[in-house]
């Protein structure tokens, strides 16, 4: 092997520190959530137990953990579906340069750089002016979409940039209607990317904080609930909750990856004898 230069080791150490900084907090909370029944919010550990995980399922003095989890989950799914549907439609529309497409594109992307708390404030204000009730499923979803949609659209732009138009022309040539072309050719080909967009939509919504802060109404989503609890709850049950939601997020991501993997496998099953009989 080639000898490594000295800068390699320096950079490796720097990178190691960066990783530690990235995951240190999560690991710390993970460890502290196994605090003994008499332990506090900080080190040292006073024994090791899963007491606080049990406690999580008991009736809490403050906070509605499971209610807020349910809301966050449903909201995440709603945002995910909207993001996928609108991103695909937007990606299809932007393939042809229509009048004002450039301006529209910048308008969409701009919402990524507007401070999220301002969007939250603005949406809340509009609902107030129109005398509508702010609710996590209406105003909350709307302000979350200002965050997830630009991401989804940017991904779809990249996808359609690489998409070979002759697939669609071939489909039309072979008698497919416009809708059949989308249904049987375009969507199946871009399906793996759609899983990515869906994952983005769900996870961005699931841990969205600032945009939901002033738009969720009287019922909190999970991140808001956790934030509320940090000022009231004084036991490691908070850490247990943090650990559990982190694990939940990981399961969701792995679930999506599994779906992507199975989709690919299903395609490849057709060709199990690949490699034999090539001319």
């Amino acid at each position: 092997m080639e000898p490594r230069s000295r800068s390699f080791y320096a950079l490796a150490i720097f990178f190691g520190l960066f990783i530690l900084f990235l995951y240190g907090p999560v690991i710390t909370i993970g460890i502290l959530s196994f605090q003994g029944p008499r332990g506090g919010l900080t080190f040292p550990m006073n024994g090791v137990s899963v007491h606080w995980f049990y406690d999580l399922f008991e009736k809490q003095a403050v906070g509605d953990i499971w209610g807020s989890f349910r809301r966050s989950f449903v909201l995440g799914l709603m945002v995910m579906v909207c993001t996928v549907v609108f991103s695909v439609m937007c990606g299809l529309a932007f393939r042809s340069r229509f009048r004002g497409s450039g301006l529209l594109f910048y308008l969409i992307i701009t919402s990524l750089i507007i401070p999220s708390i301002l969007i939250s404030l603005g949406v809340g204000l509009i609902f107030n002016i129109l005398d509508w009730e702010v609710h996590w499923s209406t105003s909350g979803m709307g302000s979350q979409l200002t965050w997830t949609l630009p991401f989804g659209i940017l991904i779809m732009f990249a996808v359609f940039n690489r998409f070979d138009k002759s697939y669609e022309e071939a489909a039309r040539d072979l008698g497919a209607s416009w809708w059949q072309t989308i249904r049987f050719v375009v969507l199946p080909i871009i399906a793996p990317s759609l899983i990515g967009v869906a994952l983005f939509g769900f996870t961005l919504s699931y841990d969205e904080f600032a945009r939901t802060l002033l738009t969720s109404g009287s019922k909190n989503t999970l991140p808001l609930e956790i934030f509320g609890m940090t000022t009231n709850v004084t036991t490691p049950v908070l850490y247990a909750l943090g650990t559990l939601t982190t694990v939940f997020s990981l399961i969701i991501i792995l679930g999506f990856l599994l779906i992507a993997y199975l989709l690919r496998r299903r395609q490849e099953r057709h060709g199990s004898d690949a490699g034999s009989g090539l001319v």
Binding site: E169, R172, D173, L174, V185, P188, Q267
Partner: peptide, 18 residues
Amino acid sequence: PADRGSAMMFQSYALFPH
């Protein structure tokens, strides 16, 4: 295209990959 009685062979063949 489909109503013309023509069939087109594309340079890239455009076989549906899925």
